[in-house]
Structure formats: structure tokens, C-alpha cells
Amino acid sequence: MNEVDYQETAFQLILSAGNAKALAFKAINFSKLNKFEEAYKCLEEAEKELETVHSLQFGLIQKEAEGQKNDISVLLIHSQDHFMDSLLAKDMAKEFIQLYERMNKIEKVFGNL
């Protein structure tokens, strides 16, 4: 993998991870509005973006395991930060949606407290 391909992969990682993170926060916002179907749809889309990121990352790891050494660039480190942030955002979004679903059920029974 040459330097241009390496940078392109890092940019693709950043783009897909950023999309996943944005979708996770969109899911939280939908859940605040009790739009749970839309929230879960956003999480599904976030998962697809994260599959792309994981595939790209695995490709880099596989090439290194095959002996293709690359200098670790700030760009690649930045892309990994985005990946980890998006994974955390997706996991937290799941928790928030479940919490809002519980609150919605309680409010249906007891009204707004």
C-alpha cells in the first residue's frame, strides 16, 4: 500500500466513523421525541458505517501482518480516535434509547412526573 492509498484509507475511516457517530446522536434525539423506530433505524445505519470502518481497519492490520510496514501518521491516529469515539457513541445511544423507552412506558402509566 503506497502513501496515497494509506492516506485515502485513513480519510475513509474518518468519514465513515464520523457518519456513525452522527447517526448515533441522531438516534438519541429521535428517542427523546419517543420516535423509537426511527432511533433504531439510525442505529442500524450507524452499524453499517462501523462495519465499513472495521473492514478498512482490518485491511490495514492485515497488510502490516503481511510485512508491509507503514509509518504511523497523525492522520491514522486521528482516524482511530474517530473510530473509537463512534463505537462509544453507538453503545451509549443504545443505552439512551432503552432509557427513553422505559421513561415513555412509565409516563404512559403514571403521566409526566
Rank of each mutant, 00 (worst) to 15 (best):
K32C: 05
I72E: 11
L76I: 13
S86I: 01
L56E: 04
A46E: 01
K35E: 13
Q7A: 14
E49V: 06
F30M: 07
K48W: 09
H78S: 05
S55F: 13
L23T: 01
N19L: 12
E38P: 04
A46N: 01
D91S: 13
V4G: 08
A22C: 08
A24N: 00
E37S: 12
K90R: 12
A24E: 00
L50S: 03
S31R: 01
D85R: 07
L56R: 03
V53W: 00
D91M: 10
K41D: 09
H54Y: 13
L50W: 02
E51M: 13
S73C: 13
N29A: 07
E44S: 11
F11V: 10
A46V: 04
S16I: 04
G18F: 06
D85K: 13
K90W: 04
A46I: 02
N19F: 10
N29T: 04
T52N: 13
S86L: 01
E3P: 06
L13S: 03
I14A: 07
I72V: 15
A39T: 00
F30V: 00
K21N: 06
A65M: 12
G59N: 15
L76N: 06
G18H: 05
D71Y: 12
N2C: 08
H54R: 10
N70T: 14
Q62L: 13
A20H: 06
H78A: 06
H78L: 02
L60W: 06
A24C: 07
T9D: 09
A27P: 00
L60V: 08
N29F: 02
K63S: 13
D85Q: 10
L76D: 05
E3I: 11
G59E: 10
M84Q: 03
